[in-house]
Design a binder for these strands. Structure first.
Lengths: 198, 198, 198, 198
DNA sequence: TCCTAAACGAGACGGTACGTCTAGTCTTGCT
DNA sequence: AGCAAGACTAGACGTACCGTCTCGTTTAGGA
């Protein structure tokens, strides 16, 4: 068996070159048309250097996308939960259809459908942090009496985020995705607390 | 240019063998591990016969999946919209995670992210008929006074269907997908008509 | 077993079209780049019509070449055997390197190296008639005392014809092939009758 | 453009396996029935490894044949030019009809009729070295007064070698090819120097 | 003059091999 | 020891033809 590489001796230069090349190629040509060979060539790196540190093209691109995104998943908090949700869903939908990240995201998610490890990595590094931020904001809105308290906030997260991804993955088109934030109002109809019986 | 084949002379035997082989292989090995060569071999058919009638592996599997599904997209109508929605969403979620169609659906959708023609075909043959059925049922519920009339029914369709696909594509796991029907109640909270001001 | 076709009902139109297309295509693109499909297409004929009457591309092209050549293998007879041989070898060498027949001949001979039936057909329809004509002329030259009588005339035929084909098949180049007639004189050096002991 | 491979890093193991497999297959099945795929499979080698180093099946088989022949083209020199020519032509004719090289030679030459690069390679590696050896021997025979000096020795080479190849390529049959050495005497009739006027 | 059997055009079919592409592994210096 | 480089085995890709096999559609001789 091949022994695990020693990460202390890893070349940061090679790592950066690989991630930059991967992100650039995916952005320009689309995930499906990018190959490990192509990444290695553009990065000026041998293929084994990629295979030594990543398990698949999806893993490389996911990491490249993460670096591009940074780790700032902060949710806005103006005190108005409706406005904050609209702001955030609008931002997410724009990222999906036009952002630098767009091609990479679509490609990684397609790949992840048939690659459990990639899906796990995506969820841990991107999705779950985002959800946690959103949920924290919803919790504070519940505490502030802006949302009803008898629907779990993790369910609320799903209700707010689902439409944008649904429209994105099922091919409703860029315009429909971008208009997904409009649905925040409709979801909120049922999530507002009521003085009278629901 | 290669002229189009004459579909009148097409061999139904070959067509069936190809679709059956494709569906069987995808179900057993997963979309990603199936090859056109493998389909041709199992179907007892030459590769060119596949390429003559379909443009990609995704197209073959989509058609195989369509034949498996049949064209029955009927939406239940018991008079109780909440019950009917729950029934239908439950059925959809089960199909996605355990049904015969499960692997094929996941593979086709992953492929469709980077293949516009495949996405278009999927929408026309499967998604849009389903949506139309759902929408018709929602229209009748609006007419019956079970749903408010100031939210367009196509938006309602998105609100009800989004969670199941969202959880499915973003890797929430089979259990979470199956529990998606529970969210019907939460969405309905806001879509019920009200006599008092909203 | 497929019964033999009835040659009385054969379509002369189809036969002509096939031979013409075959000869034209071979002349323009070279034997190796011509396909049965291409011949059928240019002839406006179905592939089975070709397979019904010929066993291979080589057989078609051989017949086409034969029609082009006609059956005139007459050897010149001016009374001067040296001049007649030079005339004939010159004619043959020109046919091989520049004539209409050039590509077809080269292709058929290459094919015939691995197709005994084709070789047999070539010898019977072209080579042996030519040899017979040559040999008859040599016999008359022997009778006229212009050639020695103790070397069999079939051996003489080989000695005169060998150089041109040798140079042609072993790639000595068009010029060398065309100059092959010059060797007639050198061969004749030994084949002239002598009064003194040989 | 595909950059040229670096021959310093070439695997000698793969090269040997390919040449051995090619030669074995051609010897057993005949050139026409051998495929690049078959060679790769028997050699335990990927197809691209063959295409990386050779341009065609003919080129592989030519090199395999060269290795089998070795580079020993030495012409015998017993002092008797007639005997030496007979020995050599006999050896060549036997190689053509029964030797290990027989199938490979026939196949390569057939291919070379429509492949100028292959013909060039054949001439440079096999034919021209043989001719040079023969010519050197003839030169020494001329110097020794055994052959006339007014016929160029390169023409003499053609006269001696032509019959065996002519009979071989034009399908005279194995026996006729093997008897080609008999013609040496007839050619020599005219190439012996004479004291009386020619 | 019609009938009918065949040859015909067309082209889809099951196959084979092509030559290319990329994957992932292995090997060889170089730093 | 990790690296760049790239050759290696492996195998799927999509294409080109093969030779066979239906299909209707002429077409030509015999009834």
């Amino acid at each position: 068996m091949t022994s695990a590489p020693n990460s202390e001796r890893r070349s940061e230069r090679a790592r950066r070159a690989i991630l930059d090349a991967a992100f650039d190629l995916v952005s320009r040509k689309g995930f499906a048309k990018v190959t490990i060979e192509g990444i290695a060539a553009q990065a000026g790196v041998g293929k084994p250097t990629i295979y030594r540190w990543w398990g698949s093209k999806g893993a490389v691109v996911l990491e490249a996308m993460n670096e591009e995104l940074g780790d700032d998943f902060a949710f806005p908090d103006t005190g108005d939960i409706a406005a904050d949700l609209t702001t955030q869903i609008t931002a997410v939908s724009r990222r999906l259809v036009t952002g630098r990240i767009s091609e990479a995201f679509k490609g990684v998610m397609a790949e992840a459908q048939n690659d459990a490890a990639l899906m796990k990595a995506f969820r841990e590094t991107i999705l779950e942090p985002s959800i946690a931020e959103c949920r924290a904001r919803l919790d504070s809105a519940v505490a502030a009496g802006q949302l009803r308290s008898d629907v779990p906030t993790d369910v609320m997260v799903d209700l707010f985020y689902a439409p944008v991804h649904y429209r994105h993955f099922l091919g409703f088109g860029d315009d429909a995705v971008r208009r997904s934030a409009d649905l925040v109002q409709d979801v909120l109809l049922g999530l507002r607390p009521r003085t009278d019986a629901g």
